[in-house]
Amino acid sequence: MSYLGILDADLPDLLKTMYHIRAFEEKVDELFMQGAIHGTTHLSIGEEAVPTGALHALRSDDYITSTHRGHGHCIAKGADLNLMMAELLGRESGYCRGRGGSMHIADVDAGNIGANGIVGGGIPIAVGVGLSIHMQQQARVCLCFFGDGAANEGTFHEAINLCSIWRLPVIFLCENNQYGMSMSAKLSMHVASVADRAIAYGIPGESVDGNDVFAVHHAVWQAAERARAGQGPTLIEARTYRYKGHSKSDQNRYRTRAEIDDWRARDPIVIFTEVVRARGVLAPGADTQVRANAYADIEAAYAFALASPEPQVADLLEGVYA
């Protein structure tokens, strides 16, 4: 049995992924508040449906490029929560051995080409990954996450144009969370949707409800089918919202409480849970157990990170060159 293109049997796992993302972000938020993590961080609470739906539409050996708000992408790609949390705590056991932190988590061998601290920085790299797939005649695709802010960077234009003329297997997925830091997408673009820009490159463009796992999944699945068939890239906009500020310095002066509440009323996990309940794939009350297990997994990841050693200062210079 399936519903809107997703097998019923897969629904509990997707719910788990969404809770993992939310629990991870909430834990990171808490740790920053306590001063237990240094630096800065960008949380994706409220945006969980986008990576959850998108990655479910792909195969495990497909690639992703990610953004500064990338924890959810990593988790949905199947990252090890322990290694992620260890990275945020700057530990040697982390994905980047404590050298990268929140904005640079990557696992290239597993297909995660990496988060990126530069807005729009990953878009041309995704095209290169697509080129590599094409030249090696692989059946893979590359899913390129970026935000509404990145859609106004020059790299967006250069990269999507290049990808279009070469018909490379890349899916450009814009997470439009309505703000580039404080700048509203309504004020930073003169089009209604980032997807409208697809026409400029002669590729398909589609705007979907980014709080709906099924809508995101369907759009990405279609794009992946096209990409694997040699029909080139697709531009998808997923409309969503971040509940938390841009980063820890954000005081939310540019938006209203009412706006935040409106989006919270359409919470992606609540919406998805209703579908899971309606499909009857979980015993009554079992979704709360999924939630509880996910939060427990994050606590275990935190314990793993705390117990992990810090990098040795003597190793400071190691790893600059191959």
Partner: peptide, 19 residues
């Protein structure tokens, strides 16, 4: 095309994945 950032980025992405 005349797209230097895309040339560089495409080279990086390809280099990261076996080319």
């Amino acid at each position: 095309p005349i797209s230097e950032a895309a040339i560089a980025g495409a080279a990086i992405g390809a280099a990261l994945t076996g080319m």
